[in-house]
Design a binder for these strands. Structure first.
Lengths: 234, 234
DNA sequence: AATACCATGGGTGTATACAATAGATGCCTC
DNA sequence: GAGGCATCTATTGTATACACCCATGGTATT
């Protein structure tokens, strides 16, 4: 199973098996505790989780497979710094896949599924009012993975999960000029179309929603990768 | 990078780094040297490749991430036996993603790209005339990954690569009643639509092609998973 | 005779030890 | 004083050793 999929529910921190470690690191990245470019030393992680480097390395390999971190041979593991090109490609991929997901959702969703989605959106609203930025972002992403899971194609759902996780990293890396409210509002509008079983409109709304999120980013080529000490301190 | 993507070109067998080992195993699976359900003992693989179990385990983890093998805790690694459901989902996912790939291909493909595809199809024809079943299947799969790469979205291309590899395993596992010729012929027809830049038709043809491949399988629930010794020998 | 239990062996899961490599610091030279 | 080189340290890459678990085969019991 993919790391980002293992992340679904917060993950217990008792049993520190490999997946749990990978999920914890993925969480920390999504929560901006580990900014893009941060070094992930194996020994340090091993002490934190109370396991040997063997397990840590396995977790890091998994995360690298999900493109959340970059493994540089001989150098170590670093939180990924998605390129502008990668960012655009992820969004395009999401438009393609989630468009199909939405169509499937309309076909197969029961009243209960719609209700679940409505409740999820309500939770988003609550988090925007009083929750942490971290929980807001998590919920906004989960909206998409939940839809994908309901749609019933586990293969596509897993891909969506990975892409959603990568999107979180992308929105962290590139300055995000959109508020969480904008996304939540678009989720609401999409839900309305889903309730009416208006497939065409729902697909269009999902595509627009993803495009809007992408447009909200400042996709400059000179990424904030290596912080320029001179301009920062001079 | 994903294992199935590292497989692209046959892979040298000199430097036995982790990716190379994973690619070699993936090759062996695709070549039906390792049938679904086959046990992949770590020590045995270690001796074969002349490395320790450490590296073997890394390679196995990668392959498990690509769903080519199944890791059962405490039991070991086995060549995957895709479920009927998984098979259907893989094909549906491919229709969604490769439909979009085809559309993109028509948009961005240069005359050179079309020529490359034409040459690839010619190679398919040659392999069908005189090549091994192994090279035939490889070429038929590569057609799709090549298209995805030309289309220019690396994220989607990687997903396609993985799905193509899983498809190989699926067609091995479930009796395939279609000849290689059928697929090659459909590739030719698709190419004709691509040359005319007929997006709508090309997308439809790709979707039909994938559906035809799926229909050619005998997706029976009682998979040949654990060979029934009683019926086999009685 | 069939089933349940125990012992034994092969293989996986994890940790640790060792080797190799990259980065940094200091020194030497020009 | 600046640049290049050597050494040194810290961290990664790999192998090996040990602990544990599951599976198999045998034995004893019902």
């Amino acid at each position: 199973m993919s790391v980002v999929r293992a992340l679904k529910r917060p993950a217990a921190n008792a049993a520190v098996d490999t997946d749990a470690i990978a999920a914890r690191i993925a969480e920390a990245i999504a929560a901006q505790k580990l900014p893009p470019g941060a070094k992930l030393g194996e020994e340090a992680l091993g002490e934190i989780f109370g396991v040997s480097r063997t397990k840590i390395r396995q977790a890091l390999f998994q995360l690298a497979g999900d493109k959340l971190i970059t493994l540089i041979p001989g150098r170590g593991a670093f939180v990924a710094q998605p390129s502008v090109r990668e960012a655009r490609e992820v969004f395009e991929a999401r438009r393609v896949i989630e468009g199909a997901i939405v169509a499937r959702f309309v076909e197969v969703a029961t009243a209960k599924d719609i209700e679940m989605l409505r409740e999820h959106i309500a939770e988003e609203a609550r988090a925007i009012s009083g929750g942490s930025a971290q929980s807001r972002n998590r919920l906004l992403g989960d909206f998409h993975t939940v839809m994908a899971e309901v749609a019933g194609n586990a293969v596509l759902a897993e891909v969506v999960s990975e892409l959603v996780a990568r999107t979180s990293l992308i929105t962290l890396f590139y300055q995000n000029t959109r508020g969480a409210n904008d996304s939540a509002e678009e989720h609401r509008i999409l839900l309305a179309a889903l309730e009416k079983r208006d497939t065409r409109k729902a697909v269009a709304l999902m595509s627009e929603h993803l495009s809007n999120v992408e447009k909200g980013l400042v996709l400059r080529e000179d990424a904030p990768g290596a912080p320029d000490l001179r301009s920062a301190l001079g």
